[in-house]
């Protein structure tokens, strides 16, 4: 019988893998950009792993939550970071009071329970994680667990999803071809103006007109990408600003705190962002 484990509650498992598994009970709010739900569903039915490409805060995580609800599968999310090794994903022996005990890692757990496993920001993880990711992603569909001497056969319900932000122009943070080519890629970007207004309004409860201006402001900051800013305001930041506004914070101040300071420390650019916010409100 599969060994199940609640990753959120077990504090002894401080593998820093930041894993959480859950069944999504309520329908998450997701505003489709067009086509991605159908593509994902088709990939899922054909047991193809999926790569979500796009800048941070543009709805990738929300999309996976939504798809996990649509497909009735539990979701295991792992936020990757530069100390995350293959063992962190697969599992390891722990010594407890003189006994050794095997503990599944989040990936193994997801395979056993037929969950959707979402590896967020995959390029941040150690290179050795590809050892376990590759056999999962081709037609072998197996998860080798060396330490147990087991080969787990992957059930049809399981799906591997990884996300990747191509905006980091660092050579190190590029996804290797050998990995990339195993995935069906879905490109995400900031939603277009109309959708983004709807998202901002729905997520925060601000009026349509405020949402419209916030999105306009967001686009102005995106114009600064490459001349002063690495990234403009993401949808997430605009939603954050909108939430502050629904709580009575004046819009320009909300933009300064939720967007400006989240994007930069440079006083001159901050000032310009402040002026841009003041200009649209």
């Amino acid at each position: 019988m599969p060994f199940t484990h609640n990753f959120e509650k077990d504090h002894s498992l401080n593998t820093a893998s930041d894993a959480a598994e859950r069944m999504i009970e309520d329908e998450p709010y997701y505003e489709p950009a067009g086509g991605e739900i159908e593509v994902f569903t088709a990939a899922y039915r054909n047991q193809l792993p999926v790569l979500l490409k796009g800048p941070t805060g543009c709805g990738k995580t929300r999309f996976i939550h939504y798809m996990s609800w649509v497909l009735h599968r539990p979701l295991v999310t792992v936020a990757c970071h530069d100390d995350l090794t293959a063992a962190d994903l697969v599992g390891r022996y722990l010594v407890r009071g003189g006994e050794t005990q095997w503990l599944d890692g989040p990936l193994t757990h997801a395979v056993r329970t037929g969950a959707i496993c979402y590896l967020d920001e995959i390029v941040e993880a150690r290179k050795d994680t590809s050892v376990v990711i590759h056999p999962l992603c081709d037609d072998r569909r197996i998860l080798p667990i060396d330490k147990l001497g087991q080969l787990l056969r992957v059930p049809a319900e399981f799906c591997l999803v990884v996300s990747y932000n191509p905006g980091y122009q660092s050579v190190l943070k590029d996804l290797k071809q050998s990995t990339r080519q195993r995935f069906v890629a879905l490109e995400f970007n900031y939603p277009d103006t109309e959708h983004e207004q709807k998202i901002v309004a729905t997520e925060s409860g601000v009026e349509a007109e405020t949402a419209r201006r916030l999105v306009k402001f967001g686009i102005h900051t995106r114009n600064l990408k490459g001349s002063g800013l690495d990234e403009g305001a993401s949808t997430r930041l605009l939603v954050n600003a909108a939430k502050l506004i629904t709580n009575g914070i004046a819009p320009p101040l909300a933009c300064d705190t939720a967007v400006g300071h989240a994007l930069t420390d440079d006083p001159e650019i901050l000032h310009a962002i402040h002026e841009l916010a003041a200009a649209v409100f």
Binding site: H220, S227, G228, E268, H271
Partner: peptide, 15 residues
């Protein structure tokens, strides 16, 4: 000048 350069860039259109 520094501020205005960013401001004009942010407003959009030809750089």
């Amino acid at each position: 000048a520094g501020l205005l350069r960013y401001l004009v860039r942010g407003l959009g259109g030809r750089a």
